[in-house]
């Protein structure tokens, strides 16, 4: 039986304007998350906001004292806005880890991550997992991280630890290269032979759609998607995305239970 864990917020810091890093201490029974998985979280005992919020797991550690998840999130609406006000000592209810993780193919020599804004969160966990658990050399991993401005570039510290190359870009040129992350990746694409490379991406829908148009079918690429959720466990069918099935058929698949990680070429962008 899976637990609904009562977690204790130990830190909730605004690292950049509207971007927060929350650390939550959880009981031992919490399962080690795989990269790409998420949790449903709500403030304990509070019925407003009504629904729990899905949050990507950014980092995880386990020690003798128990375990700890780190959630890197952007204040996007009312729910995350209220969450941003939590102080150390607050209690939260956590369900998870949930969803399907990224699949790692050991035969692929190059790993390329492409993140837009807060999309860095699940990819950072994946990069850390590949380095520490799968013993991937940092030199095999390249991370493209883009955002509109320098003010929205978060998560760099861990990336530098995991990856040999971290290429930062901003739309306005206020940090790193000027340009959108997809175009910056495009310029370097020739360095990554498609047969030896695995791409992992997360970010806003328009970015992922642009990536799909650019690399569709050429690279093995997995993306993790975001959608409004109610249950998080596959019961309500509220968070679906259109996915190509065999023989050209389309089906709505649940981001929470069938995803959030999907093969890029199977996603139908509407």
């Amino acid at each position: 039986m899976k637990d609904i864990c009562l977690g204790l917020v130990t830190a909730n810091e605004e690292i950049k304007r509207n971007y927060f890093l929350m650390k939550v201490a959880l009981p031992d029974g919490f399962t080690d998350p795989l990269p790409g998985q998420f949790v449903m979280m709500r403030i304990a005992g509070l019925q407003d906001p009504f629904l729990s919020r899905p949050l990507s797991i950014y980092a995880f550690s386990r020690s003798q004292k128990g375990c700890m998840i780190e959630l890197l999130y952007r204040v996007a609406g009312r729910g995350t806005g209220i969450m941003a006000g939590l102080i150390a000592g607050s209690e939260v209810e956590v369900i998870g880890p949930l969803g399907q993780s990224y699949v790692v193919d050991p035969r692929r020599e190059n790993i390329v991550f492409i993140a837009g804004g807060i999309g860095v969160a699940p990819l950072s966990l994946l990069a850390g997992h590949l380095g520490e658990t799968v013993c991937r050399e940092a030199s095999s991993m390249t991370f493209f991280l883009g955002a509109r401005t320098a003010e929205e570039i978060v998560g760099l510290e861990l990336l530098h630890k995991y990856c040999y190359r971290v290429i930062v870009c901003t739309d306005d040129g206020s940090m790193g290269e000027k340009g959108q992350v997809i175009s910056v990746f495009k310029k370097e694409m020739a360095k990554f032979p498609s047969a030896e490379t695995a791409l992992y991406a997360c970010g806003p829908r328009p970015m992922l759609k642009a990536l799909a148009i650019m690399v569709g079918g050429k690279y093995m690429c997995q993306v993790s998607l975001e959608e409004r959720m109610a249950c998080g466990v596959g019961a309500c069918a509220g968070c679906v995305v259109a996915i190509k099935e065999q023989a050209g058929a389309m089906a709505y698949r649940r981001v929470c239970a069938d995803g959030p990680v999907f093969d890029l070429e199977k996603v139908i962008w509407q």
């Binding site: 009504f50 629904l51 509220g238 259109a242």
Partner: peptide, 20 residues
């Protein structure tokens, strides 16, 4: 049955709307 196109849910005050 495939159901309706997304987005299908929205939180509201004290509840939620769905069009699954």
């Amino acid at each position: 049955r495939a159901g309706n196109p997304p987005p299908r849910i929205m939180e509201t005050t004290g509840g939620m709307l769905n069009s699954v």
